[in-house]
Design a protein around this nucleic acid. Structure first.
Length: 488
RNA sequence: GGCGCGUUCGUCUAGCGGCCUAGGACGCUGCCCUCUCAAGGCAGAGAUCAGGGGUUCAAAUCCCCUACGCGCCA
């Protein structure tokens, strides 16, 4: 891919919480678009909400993005350091630039100080609304110098409002939704600076997107209605606006916006539940974007190659954890056994299986059970009985409590006590021979054997399982199961 | 309240006026494979394309209205 300096995208989170699924998808789409076109992906931290912004959130967001396998070319490296020619990428460190631009708009007369308290403007608007009248002009727009001095003298703090045109319309030419028309007379004058002196979201965003030479703003749907005002700001400041693409939102199973009450919404929670980053990334890519082939599984390279904005969905998408789990299973199965063990290490540790106790190698077990893994915790969950006796599952208990089980186990214990060599094929031959000799159907022997040895009714292929477990363990467990049966 | 966006199987979606008796994926059901469970293979159920009006020889596809959902501003 030849580098293309014209293409610059960004993700601009507020560090007021964790990176959630929706933000992750927005990040992914921005990243894909940049990579697809040889462009640059910028990460900017919108921390102007001083009360709610935290350093921990910044760290969590950076970790989440990295975990997903995405990288950014410019932005913070950690809470202290940054990279890129447009630093700082923290809005709190760019305050002077917003004030400078505000001053310019003020000087040029396209913005004015507004002394109205929020309640006052609200009341005026409500009244007009009730009477069905159009939005009245903001009273401070034509404030006399005397009146202004009066407010100042009274110690009233001013916000700064940007003048929106009274007529005509503003058209947002969105890359996903097409041309969207907005009537100017309906838009109130936009507050660009709060009474605290800080910039509003919409203003800081415009200043930074321009300063950072962003070419494509790919962001959530909720910002579409803000876009006309932003476009006017670009115009007033004499800047070329970027192209916009507004993504639909992600919904929970009940059709409302995905939130904490729907379960896990933070990317890190998915990591902790044992999802693979490549699976989550693939799933997220498909949630709101599709290609005409209806292809489901994409390697990162394929995704970068195939992704485009016109393929993005206009309507909101419901997050489906079941499909995510399926996809995760697909990725698990594609992993080499050694890699499965490596990825599952934290979960194995938690289960006390890492470093592995004496017994078969984790890698062999991973190979044995591979097609059953859906999530990483399934690795310890399906492999633990090789190392230690686990509690009987209900089904296994039922199999073992059948009256015909005990003599079978006794016979098998005798057969296997000094069986040589204790490997798959000879074991199978011998055990099948055992069935034939006693005129038993294979199932009548295999099922109790499996239950006694593994404690469960499902599991890996029987004879290889015996081989890996080893003679000592197998015989000990057969005898243990018998004695337990004897007691009951 | 105003404005904006959206509405195709339970879910993600294909579809850009005739190829649609609406295709794929997840999930579901059944069968096959088989020592169990998975995986895999095959088959099936599942959408009168939100509803109603137009336009057209022909509409899921274009236009209008209504309903519902969501967002923004207030």
């Amino acid at each position: 891919m030849t580098p293309n300096p014209e293409i610059r995208t960004r993700f601009a989170p507020s560090p007021t919480g964790y990176l959630h699924i929706g933000g992750a998808r927005t990040t992914l789409y921005n990243w894909l678009f940049a990579r697809r076109h040889g462009g640059t992906f910028v990460l900017r931290i919108e921390d102007t909400d001083e009360v709610r912004s935290t350093a921990d959130s910044v760290t969590a967001i950076l970790d989440s993005i990295s975990w997903l396998g995405l990288d950014w070319d410019e932005g913070p490296l950690d809470f202290e350091r940054e990279k890129g020619p447009h630093a700082s990428y923290y809005q709190m460190k760019r305050l002077a630039s917003y004030q400078e631009h505000t001053k310019r708009l003020l000087d040029e007369g396209t913005a004015y100080p507004c002394y109205c308290a929020k309640e006052e403007t609200d009341a005026v608007r409500k009244e007009a609304q009730a009477k069905g009248q159009p939005m009245p002009e903001d009273p401070c727009r034509r404030l006399s110098e005397a009146k202004r001095k009066e407010h100042e003298a009274a110690g009233r703090k001013a916000a700064v409002r940007f003048i929106m045109p009274d007529e005509g319309e503003t058209i947002v030419d969105d890359l996903i939704r097409g041309k969207v028309h907005f009537e100017n007379r309906l838009a109130p004058d936009l507050v660009i600076q709060k009474t605290t002196g800080g910039p509003t979201y919409n203003f800081a965003c415009v200043c930074d997107d321009h300063a950072m030479a962003i070419s494509h703003v790919i962001r959530g749907d909720e910002h579409l209605s803000n876009t006309p005002a932003q476009l006017r700001l670009y115009e007033a400041l004499g800047w070329k606006p970027p192209k916009f693409a507004h993504l639909s939102m992600i919904l929970g199973p009940d059709g409302t916006k995905l939130s904490k009450r729907h379960g896990a919404t933070s990317v890190l929670e998915y990591r902790d539940q044992g999802f693979l980053p490549e699976a989550l990334r693939n799933y997220l890519a498909l949630l709101g974007w599709s290609n005409t082939e209806s292809k489901q599984l994409f390697s990162p390279e394929e995704l970068v190659k195939a992704f485009d904005l016109p393929g993005c969905q206009k309507n909101p998408a419901t997050f489906d954890p079941v499909k995510l789990a399926w996809m995760n299973g697909e990725y698990m199965r594609a992993l080499a056994p050694a890699e499965i063990v490596k990825r599952a290490e934290p979960f194995l540790k938690k289960a006390g299986l890492f470093p592995p106790p004496p017994g078969p190698s984790l890698e062999r077990l991973a190979a044995l059970e591979r097609e059953k893994f859906k999530l990483l915790p399934d690795v310890p969950g399906r492999v633990d009985f090789f190392y230690r006796e686990t509690e009987l599952t209900d089904k296994a208990r039922k199999t073992l409590s059948a009256p015909e089980a005990k003599p079978v186990l006794a016979g098998l214990a005798g057969l296997l006590a000094s069986f040589e060599p204790f490997t798959e094929k000879p074991l199978e031959e011998a055990i099948r021979g055992f069935c034939a000799a006693r005129a038993l159907k294979p199932g009548q022997v295999f099922h109790p054997l499996r239950a006694a040895v593994s404690g469960r009714a499902d599991g890996p292929t029987l004879f290889l399982m015996l081989e890996l477990m080893g003679r000592e363990t197998v015989v000990a467990r057969l005898r243990g199961a018998m004695s337990k049966l004897g007691q009951s």
